[in-house]
């Protein structure tokens, strides 16, 4: 069990692709064997974005025994101009740069109970975990929530594998997930203190679970989640960022980050994780026209509400109704 590693890039070859739900493409990639990919691990792939390239992270849904054939599943994001749209064009035989399996979301079998919660495409991060827990004979429940059956990848396969341990919630069928009830049931269980909840899904869902978890006074360390910094409260839109002390003004396109736009504008900023976890890229907010869309997990709820700092690698600004000049944020360097 490795917790993380430096990305080791090599050429991956697409072996097979198939649609597995509306807008979801399953893609199997061959790469040099490196040992079976552990549950919770992901692949980084390099994708063309505009006239440059960028890195996207996709959870590994399936790995063969030596880790040479890895399957991911990619949701096409409607406003995507880069990553997911490119991934959907891949056909067998195509090649693209990929890393070895990287692990930031490790499953611990030490917990007495496991609840796995997937919202939509988040199923890709927890499907392999459910498999491992099933194989180990552990106590687990897999909760899978989605908007409609057609949009939920792997639903039939999971039902066959996990039987009663799979609990499905579908908005279109009037059986939506009740977060308060889910967290409440964990809190009422006699082994509540020894239950780990692993979740992956839209940030609104994860924020709701986090708030319910805090108010149920469950141990925060038992709430396990991963974000690739790609999910916010609002749809990404274009906005303007300024650094008054350097007289810099840059446009942040909907498919790039503040960090990227400022770097392009010649500002040398410190950063590391690029997914809103480490806190190295924080800048102070001097003024904002619009609303901050915090997408990081470094700042606490209170700090996000204060709005005095922003994680430039993932967080954004969106227009507020009645702001005539479009969204803008002005930041100060450390």
């Amino acid at each position: 069990m490795t917790t993380s590693a430096q990305p080791d890039w090599s050429t991956g070859r697409v072996l097979a692709t198939a649609p597995v739900a509306a807008d979801v493409q399953r893609i199997t990639i061959q790469r040099p064997a490196r040992g079976r990919a552990a549950p919770g691990s992901h692949l980084d792939v390099r994708v063309p974005v505009g006239d440059t390239t960028d890195v996207r992270s996709y959870s590994i849904v399936e790995s063969d025994d030596d880790g040479s054939q890895l399957t991911i599943s990619v949701l096409r994001v409607p406003q995507s101009r880069g990553g997911s749209a490119f991934m959907h064009t891949l056909v067998p035989g195509d090649e693209l740069p990929v890393t070895q399996p990287l692990q930031n979301f490790p499953l611990s079998v030490a917990a007495a109970r496991h609840v796995l919660l997937a919202g939509g495409i988040g199923i890709t991060a927890v499907a392999a975990m459910a498999q491992a827990l099933r194989r180990a004979g552990d106590d687990y429940t897999l909760v899978y929530a989605g908007r409609s059956r057609e949009r939920m990848a792997y639903l039939d396969e999971l039902a066959g594998l996990h039987g009663d341990r799979l609990v499905v919630h579908i908005d279109a069928e009037q059986t939506p997930l009740d977060v308060a009830e889910l967290v409440g049931s964990i809190g009422r269980h006699p082994r509540s203190g020894a239950t780990e909840l692993y979740m992956c899904g839209p940030i609104r869902l994860m924020d709701a679970v986090r708030r319910a978890w805090e108010s149920a006074a469950l141990p925060l360390v038992n709430l396990r989640y991963e974000t690739f910094g790609s999910s916010g409260w609002f749809q990404p839109e274009e906005f303007v960022v300024t650094i008054p002390e350097r007289a810099v003004e840059a446009t942040v396109r909907s498919d790039e980050t503040i960090l990227g736009a400022l770097t392009r504008a010649g500002i040398d900023l410190m950063y590391d994780c690029r997914k809103g976890e480490c806190g190295l890229c924080l800048l102070d907010v001097e003024a904002v026209d619009g609303a901050l869309d915090h997408r990081d997990v470094f700042l606490s709820t209170t700090q996000k509400a204060d709005g005095r700092t922003i994680s430039t690698c993932v967080s954004r600004v969106v227009a507020r109704e009645g702001s005539p000049n479009g969204p803008r944020v002005s930041l100060t360097l450390p």
Partner: peptide, 13 residues
């Protein structure tokens, strides 16, 4: 020096 804990942070047990 921070109010949260990085969710990736763990060591193998």
């Amino acid at each position: 020096a921070q109010e949260t804990v990085n969710p990736s942070a763990m060591v193998p047990s």
